[in-house]
Simulated scan of single mutants.
Amino acid sequence: MRNRARCRHHRRSAAGPGRRRGERITLYSRKRIVLALALAVLGGCSSQGSDSASSGSQASAGAGAGSKVIGVSIQDREAQFYQSMEAGMREAAKRYGYTLHVVDANRDNSKQQSQVEDFISQKVDAIILTPYDSTAIGSAIVEANNAKIPVFTADIASTSKQGTVVAHIASNNVQGGMEAGSLMCQALKGESAPTVAIIDEPEVTSVQDRVKGFKEELAKTCPSVKVVADVTAGGQRTKASSVADDLLQRHPNLSGIFGINDDSALGAMKSVEAAGKAGKVAIVGYDATVEARTAIKAGTMYGDAIQHPDQIGSLTIGAIHDYFNGKTPSPVIAVPVGTYTKADAK
C-alpha cells in the first residue's frame, strides 16, 4: 500500500510541475504574440508618419522589389505651382512604379546643396531639381555627375557652366511672357500714354525669359506702352505688396503692373485695392493659380499667362523613364503656355 501510495504521490508531483511548465510556455507564447502585434502596429504608424514622400502603395511595393528611387528637391514646396507639379510627378511615378523622395529647399541654396548630397548618400537612381539659385546649383550637379546619378531640372534651368543636366522640362517662358504682354496690351487699349511696371525676380532663368517675352510683345503690339519700372520682389507676395506700394507713390498715374508669378500679382493687387485704384490699374500675372483665377473672375486682376505645372511634372518623370530604358530624352522639353481671362472663368 505504501509503495502504491508513493507511486500515486510521485505521479501527482510529476503532473503538477508539468502543468506549471505548460502554463509558463503558454504564457510565454502569448507574450510573444502580443509583442509581435505591438511591433506591427508601431511599424504601421511609423510608415504612415514617414516623410519619404513615397508615390503610393504600388510604388512602395515596387521599391522593395528593386524599383527605382528618384530624389526631388523643390525650391518652394509651399507654392501652389510646385504643389501641382509635384502632383503630376507623383501620378506618373505611380504609373511606372517608381518611388519619389521629395524634399523642400525652402528657397535656400545651401539647403538644396545639402539635399543633393543626401540623395547621393542614399544612392538614388535619379535627381530632379527646381534650382533656387540657377548659377550656384552647378557644384551640386557636379557632385551628382561624379556619383553617376543623372540630373534633371524642372521649371527652372541651371545656368551654371558646371555640371551636366540630362534634360530640362519647363514652360516655354518666352512665349508665356509674350502671352502676358498681349494681355497687357488688350487691358490698356485706348489709353493715352500708358505706363506699366514689372514686379520681377531677375535671378531666376524662367523669369528672365518671361520678362524678355513680355517686353518683346509690348514693343511689337502696343509700342506706346512704356515700362517705367522693373523692380524685384523675389517672387514673394508680401514683398510684392511693399514694392507695389512704392510704385504707386512714385508713379501715381501707373496704368498696369505685370507680376512675374501670381504671388507677385496678388501682392500688387492688394496694394492697388488699398490705394483705392482697383479697376484703374490693370494687373496681369503668371501661373493662373486658383486664387488668381478667383481674382480674375472678380475683375480685380485682368488676366494671367497660364502654365501647366502638372504636365511639367508628368513629362519630367516620363523623360527619366525613357532614360532608365536606354533612350536619350530631348535636352529641352517645352510645355506651351496659354492665357486665362474673365471670359475663361466659370
Rank of each mutant, 00 (worst) to 15 (best):
C7Y: 11
R11E: 02
R20S: 14
R21D: 12
R21S: 08
E23I: 05
L42F: 14
G44Y: 09
C45W: 14
Q48Y: 15
G49F: 15
A53N: 14
S57C: 06
S57G: 08
Q58T: 11
A59W: 08
G64D: 00
Q75V: 14
E78N: 12
S84M: 11
G88T: 05
G97L: 02
A105V: 02
N109F: 10
Q113T: 10
S121Q: 13
K123W: 13
K123A: 10
D125N: 15
I127S: 03
Y132V: 15
I137Q: 12
I137N: 09
S139M: 07
S139V: 14
I141E: 00
I141G: 04
N145C: 03
A147V: 07
K148N: 12
T153G: 01
G163I: 01
S171A: 06
N172C: 04
N173T: 08
G176H: 00
M184N: 04
C185H: 08
Q186M: 10
A187E: 07
K189N: 05
T195A: 03
A197I: 03
P202M: 11
E203R: 15
V204P: 14
R210E: 09
K212E: 09
F214H: 10
L218F: 07
A219L: 01
K220M: 01
T221A: 10
K226V: 03
K226P: 00
T232P: 04
R237N: 12
A240I: 00
S242P: 01
H251Y: 15
S255Y: 05
I257A: 04
F258A: 09
G267A: 01
K280T: 11
A282K: 05
D287A: 03
D287I: 00
A288S: 11
A288T: 06
T289E: 02
E291Q: 15
A292P: 10
R293H: 06
I296L: 01
K297R: 08
G299V: 00
Y302Q: 03
G303V: 03
P309R: 12
T316M: 07
G318E: 15
I320Y: 04
N325S: 13
K327T: 00
P331I: 05
I333L: 06
I333W: 09
P336A: 14
T339D: 11
T339M: 09
T341F: 00
K342S: 05
A343T: 03
D344E: 07
